[in-house]
Structure formats: C-alpha cells, structure tokens
C-alpha cells in the first residue's frame, strides 16, 4: 500500500475550526473501536510523498441541510437535474421498511416526511474515487483516468460521451452532462486541491460531516479518524476499493 509523509498545506488542515481534530487528538475522548485501516502503517519518513486523497463521511453528524449540494453546484457549475453529490435521507419505519429520498428541487431542501420511524438519518453521497474504478476500466478512449494522488477524473476534451462509464459505476456517481454532452462526476474539487483548498462540500459543511484528507500522511485528520472509528464502504463486494469511508453507516445503506 501507499506510504506517506506529507506536511502543512493540506486542505483538511485548513484554518477552520476542526472539532474533529480535537476529538482525535484527545486521548480522553477516543476509544479505539477495532477497525483500524492498514494503509496508514508504513510511513518511512523519507522525503516528500505525494498525497493520496480520500474522503470520509460521518453519517452520524450530517443533518441534511444540503449546503454541500448547493456549494457543489455553485463551485462546479453542475447543471440542473444531475448531481456530483447528493444527500439521501433514510427512514426505516417500525416494520423495517426502508424509505429513501433526496432533495432534488432547486434549493435542495428536504420536504417534510411522516414521523414515527424506527430510525432515520442522512447519508451524503459522491464519487467514491475507487482505487480500482470500473469507470476507468470501461472507458473505451482513455478519457476516464486516475491521477497519481488518487483522484478519478474525466477528460472532457477527449470523452466521446458514450455513457459506458455511467452504466459501469455501481454508485450512480457519473452522469452525462446535459450541457457539455460528456461524462461528468465529482472531482474532489481537483482545482481547489491544487491551491491547497478543501473541496467545496467539505468547506461548506457546517457540521463536519464531510472530511477530506491525505491517506499518505498518517497524522492527517482523516488517517487518524480511520484508525479510531469504525467505518463501512459502499458495495465493497464489487471489488472497486472505494475511497469514501462512511463513519457510523447504517446497514441499510447501499
């Protein structure tokens, strides 16, 4: 796996107040819960390692304001009706029936929903930037690619718009952009990473439910968090090795 040693200008260490950082740093607070990722174990400390970006979603913190969806739309000019990121609301009623909805209209505000449920929660979704991404595999022209720092991107100048990657993505993260007519998806705000900024959804999440960081840095907030808290991946059985780690994810989420 990747080794890492990287400092300072990471988006996840931005000047925002990072309550999570505190939580992670304080031995009083954290109880190792037996789910330590192995990838952060091989820091050799020699020289500068390129970052290896990954994402975490704390589903226990998301409160469904959809600020991420608005920010993503504004940051990336995502047209109406397609989504680089979205927030799902799960309602599991007393008969164990699962109801899911997404705030799809212009303002991305959830409609009132009937109460009396066994449990209910929000799950933000985005591209998983899989280590073994199917979309890259199936792109016939090499317009889908992965950067060395672990971000899956689309070459909009080379894409022919066949839609095969849209079919291949198990997470529904890709779409054909109705304006450019080529495949489109979350980029982890690659243009922001290049400037040391966090992705727009991470920046604007008021609850720190979205976290971003460098897996090559064992001290990054993300690496620390993934050592300390149990998480789940989406559809791991498909062998895509997704890189969005879902903290506190309910078993019903796919």
């Amino acid at each position: 796996m990747k080794t890492r040693n990287r400092k300072s200008d990471r988006p996840d260490e931005s000047r925002r107040h990072l309550l999570k950082l505190l939580a992670a740093g304080s031995g009083l607070l954290v109880f190792p819960l037996g789910s330590l990722p192995t990838r952060a174990s091989a820091a050799d400390g020699t020289g500068e390692r390129p970052p290896y970006w990954a994402y975490a979603v704390d589903t226990t913190r998301c409160m469904g304001c959809c600020a991420c969806m608005r920010a993503c739309r504004d940051e990336n000019g995502v047209p109406k009706g397609v989504f680089r990121t979205w927030v799902e609301r799960y309602r599991i009623d007393l008969d164990d029936e699962v109801h899911v909805d997404v705030a799809m209209h212009d303002d991305f505000v959830f409609a009132p929903a009937p109460g009396d449920v066994a449990r209910a929660f929000f799950v933000p979704k985005l591209c998983n930037h899989c280590e073994k991404s199917v979309c890259n595999q199936v792109c016939p022209v090499g317009a889908a690619y992965r950067t060395a720092d672990g971000v899956v991107l689309v070459d909009a100048e080379h894409c022919i718009g066949c839609g095969y990657c849209v079919q291949a993505c198990p997470y529904g993260s890709r779409f054909i952009n109705p304006e450019s007519h080529v495949a489109d998806k979350c980029t982890f705000c690659y243009h922001r990473l290049a400037r040391g900024l966090a992705p727009a959804c991470v920046l604007t999440c008021p609850r720190e439910a979205r976290l971003f960081g460098d897996l090559n840095d064992p001290q990054s907030k993300l690496s620390v968090l993934l050592r300390q808290r149990p998480y789940r991946l989406l559809k791991p059985e498909l062998g895509t090795h997704p890189k969005c780690y879902y903290l506190g994810l309910d078993r019903e989420v796919v």
Partner: peptide, 29 residues
C-alpha cells in the same frame, strides 16, 4: 493527442486543465 500516454492511458495535459479551473468558494482566510 500530444500528452497522451505520458502518465497512463490518458491525456496527461487533462490533469493540468483540471487544476486550472478557478475556485468559486474562497475559504475563511
């Protein structure tokens, strides 16, 4: 295309193009 294959089976220049997009959200600082 010119830079195709330089970094893998894709147009390496596309990475630079992806980086060049101007951010809309600036951040607290």
């Amino acid at each position: 295309p010119a830079s195709f294959g330089d970094a893998g089976h894709f147009r390496a220049d596309a990475i630079e193009e992806a980086r060049r997009i101007a951010p809309r959200h600036l951040g607290q600082s």
